[in-house]
Design a protein around this nucleic acid. Structure first.
Lengths: 122, 122
DNA sequence: GACATATATTCACATATAGCGATACGATTC
DNA sequence: GAATCGTATCGCTATATGTGAATATATGTC
């Protein structure tokens, strides 16, 4: 099987740095015409159109036709799955003191439990 | 140019759902032998080895040789870049009330400023 | 209608998968 | 040292890029 399409989900879509860059631009909440984006990033117009197309397919942006312009707007809520997933690991790098304490507590609990957690591979 | 390698950075590495699944397994902080992982996910051993190899290259896991086993351990701090990036958008889906207020305030400020924020495309 | 502007689509290219099956390699056990 | 276990690697297939160049498709303007 080949690699999953970039349009499969948000995780694949945001793997591309330029798409994250475009998302960053649109994060001011305004509507952006394609050429507004092109003027700000060092990417050709067709490429920008394609990246916006990917973001559109996964729902990270909306588009509205206004005259000959197509106005793109960010829908930040579509990034929530990424946030939800990575949030579980947040405690490992925030609050250094608390983190040390947490890890110590965890180890203690493990010692008490005294059970091999991963499948005991002979 | 082709798509960036999965080993380019954490964003590319975690785009693959099975790698996120493996990360989830290892999140108990224990050391996992390859076969421990194989026993838990419905993936063949060579594929698991490859996924672990990708995660290793981007630093999300460490490996230690112990006898004929290779023990993999998660290094969750390597996921921080993802968290940092997505955290900027957190406010859009948390605290529904505050969010409405924030957006209203933002619009008001924009009206006061009265300047077109994106590059005024003629 | 002729022409310019804004955006999308098509083509070709170089490259990178994910997974399977077979196999190679190192460590362990007998 | 032969068999076995744990793991990595190779060859293969099918597929999906990201980008640039060229072109098509609207839409707006004179």
């Amino acid at each position: 099987m080949a690699r999953a399409a970039t349009t499969t989900d948000v995780f694949n879509a945001i793997a591309e740095p330029r798409r994250r860059e475009i998302i960053g631009l649109l994060s001011n909440g305004e509507e952006w015409a394609v050429n507004d984006v092109v003027a700000r990033v060092d990417i050709e117009q067709p490429t920008v159109s394609k990246h916006l197309g990917v973001l559109l397919q996964v729902g990270v942006v909306n588009v509205t036709k206004r005259g000959q312009h197509r106005m793109y707007r960010l829908d930040p809520t579509q990034l929530k799955p990424v946030h939800d997933w990575v949030k579980s690991y947040e405690r490992y790098w925030t609050h250094q003191i608390d983190r040390i304490k947490e890890i110590a507590e965890q180890k203690t609990l493990e010692m008490i439990a005294h059970g091999r957690t991963p499948g005991t591979s002979k």
